[in-house]
Nucleic acid binder design. Structure first.
Lengths: 111, 111
DNA sequence: AACAAATATCGTAATAATGCGATAAAACGA
DNA sequence: TCGTTTTATCGCATTATTACGATATTTGTT
């Protein structure tokens, strides 16, 4: 008990939930917004930008990387992170595939 | 330690993260897809549809309701849940506001 | 009123997520 | 090589999430 029953759901449902989980923390949202605003970015900026400890930010960056939303390159002594454009576009399509499924309500059918 | 530092982030970032958290479980994704597919819906359908216990589904429905994504009406002895269309639309706009922020990469700027 | 059906809530156990200090690892310059 | 800077990982404490049986609540029926 206490463990998510991924086996009960479709691959798409699990994938959607996993991506949503990557968005489900304000620090990660802030990181993504920062990367979106400045195409070029190094991790050090984030430590001074957000009020969290370096270890915490590194952990959030790892999760975003695991989700495929960002990618990192070694830039000399520091690290350069940016959005993964292909993944970003596919995620937008996945989410809009969900959002667009809503249909007009017939009066009486809806609550 | 161990508690999310919501005070460090903007209201928009916290709101975005909270909504994403509502999507961040395959059972809730499945529930939303079911509600999107059938405009009319009662809770009992979901218990037989998904493989989870009644108490668990009721809990997920509560979270979706708290997030404002769905709304429930008493329908005789049972309960009728459906998507909240206004909220749904505003969430789509919020997410696309994020997704659309990506800009074309100048070669050399990106990693 | 008594019963049945459908949901919600409670209590509890297990797992996941969050935050951060300490430390390791990697890359550059003197 | 040694020291500096930057990032990643480890270990731990704390809080949040998930699941479900048991029970309470609500509504309609007889």
């Amino acid at each position: 008990m206490g463990v998510t029953r991924s086996d009960l759901f479709t691959q798409e449902q699990n994938e959607f939930a996993t991506l949503a989980k990557a968005f489900a923390h304000p620090a990660r949202v802030a990181i993504l917004q920062y990367l979106l605003a400045s195409n070029k970015c190094i991790n050090g900026d984030l430590v001074s930008e957000l009020g969290l400890a370096q270890a915490t930010i590194s952990q959030h960056l790892k999760e975003l990387k695991n989700a495929g939303l960002i990618q990192g390159n070694i830039e000399g002594v520091s690290m350069s992170y940016c959005i993964n454009p292909e993944k970003w576009e596919s995620v937008q399509k996945l989410f809009n595939g969900m959002f667009d499924k809503i249909q007009a309500c017939e009066p009486g059918d809806c609550c």
